[in-house]
Write a protein that binds this DNA or RNA. Sequence first.
DNA 1: ACTCCGGATTGGAGCGCTCCAATCCAGTAG
DNA 2: CTACTGGATTGGAGCGCTCCAATCCGGAGT
Lengths: 332, 332
Amino acid sequence: MDDVAERAGVSRSLVSLVFRNADNVSEHRRRAVLEAAEELGYRTNRLARNLAQGRSMTIGVVIDDLQNPFFSRILDGIEHCLAPSGYQVLLANGARSSERSQTAITTLAELQVDGLILVGTRGDEAALLSHARSRPTVLIARQTDSDLLDSVRVDELLGSRLAVEHLSSLGHCEIVHIDGGGGASAEERRNGYRAAMAEAGLQGHTEVLRGEFTHEAGSKAAVALAARQQMPSAVFAGNDLIAAGLWVQLERSGVSIPNDLSLVGFDDSSFPGFGETGLTTIRQPAHRIGDRAGELLLERLDGSRSESCHEAIPPTIVERSSTQRLDLGAQA
Amino acid sequence: MDDVAERAGVSRSLVSLVFRNADNVSEHRRRAVLEAAEELGYRTNRLARNLAQGRSMTIGVVIDDLQNPFFSRILDGIEHCLAPSGYQVLLANGARSSERSQTAITTLAELQVDGLILVGTRGDEAALLSHARSRPTVLIARQTDSDLLDSVRVDELLGSRLAVEHLSSLGHCEIVHIDGGGGASAEERRNGYRAAMAEAGLQGHTEVLRGEFTHEAGSKAAVALAARQQMPSAVFAGNDLIAAGLWVQLERSGVSIPNDLSLVGFDDSSFPGFGETGLTTIRQPAHRIGDRAGELLLERLDGSRSESCHEAIPPTIVERSSTQRLDLGAQA
DNA sequence: ACTCCGGATTGGAGCGCTCCAATCCAGTAG
DNA sequence: CTACTGGATTGGAGCGCTCCAATCCGGAGT
């Protein structure tokens, strides 16, 4: 920077002003500085700037699993909201690992991001809170009632209820749930499933298969189910990845969906290119969730709000062709 | 930091040593420092550290489209490779926009990342090169022969050859290629197809239908094919989108796949098996690509290589149910 | 008792930038 | 001609850390 200043025949301060786009810099000086910078291949060092300014104009986003299309649509919403604000979004992948997520958060925090959005992040709540103390933080798809941070999530219980009600209204009783294990909202979906089963008078048929929010977990579950002499008539999968894995694997075993088994997913993940999958599922308004999280963060950043805010966005059920009346299946 | 030092009754330097996990610090001092830090809620400021050290132990990755599952599988490979190396991966989304990608790269560069991996990034090559000059850079899924950076991509020619060989080994001769027009790797795939046809002694049957890497282009091609009195027995589509469009449209015209026509796609871009397309296709080893890119970057970072390196990773063919022996189709 | 040694510890000079108070310099009014 | 004004420009003190040369210190060697 000093080199640029010298070459342009001005002070370092003036160079700084030029690169910050300050408006009270005379045109010929500005030109001289830019020219000198060009010749010297000078690039501003944002590290130093951030250090000096004490802020980075950067938002850190930690995503539990970038491969999960639901999360990436949330991200889309976040970026859509944040793009015009002047903040740059920096991402880190939690890779479905609690430790990886922790170090990702720590890295971003140490990098002095101005705000943090955690998408489906797992791990110790206390750890999250300690970061929230020093900068605005929004949690997505994770339950919390801390007043140190904001959160946006889907009403998971309602989602599970919608799924179960849909299946039971089609005459299904043996509705097995394949859960997301320790994943983000697995527990709530599981609880919602249990509650809804009870409400529908099906508590006797309640059965949860331990899984994980992945395609593979779906395949595994399919293998387990196919091995039984008596298959359930319906499955409520913890998310669409599980449903997808399950579907493919079941078809391989000669089980036809929806004839032999009705299947409901969760998330309404869309998989580009192949149009509608035909999976009946619970749609999470992913884009809206991300967008809202961005808004909440901005409100904190510009100081227009200081009380914490926890939002639950209601999901909807999308009925496609993976579910069908029980008796229809029986006839076939 | 000074506060911590004072509270622990040591110098700032010693505090620094403790937080860098230096090994020649006496145990009781270390304990004292950590304790003081804990009480004061001290967190190391990585910005300042990076500035002072002149390196950040951070790799920047810019992804053209995080929603694209192919790219996120690449990312998975990158992180898999980089995780044990001590480097933290920082992501930015190009959002399928040339400008967004540019600012993302610039932000990362200004943040002084130690290395850069650009996945499918669009935009001016000159701009990319200017960043590559100041730090190791690896390009993924983008052609270049600059010796300022490394690149990893799929061996498109081989992919085409695999497709053609597979079809011809099933007895097919009339293999039409629907290409990707001016799309990214369309030309190479086309050339690969021509070469492979010649090798298989089928140069007389070589036929390329002009297309585009979209679903619609596939539909159009289907209409064109169905209008002929003599359909080819096999089609090699430029990518899976084309194949999908073709498939749907052909089925509508009463052409059954694979009975009446065998179909091979390219990319294996669908989310693994979702909706069970059963499409035989050329799989791009996304994970391997990311992994290799990480390796190349590490080689540059530890200085073990200084000449540029451009790699082509061999794809594999995934045989599903959209292809079948010619004579089987004839019998049906 | 004296020197020497090597590991533990420290002070101070940066890293590249911003911020602020101070200064410069027309141009204008008196 | 002088005082005053306000925008353009500047020097220097940080931001929070690391690095290096210098210092400290307790024990070993003579």
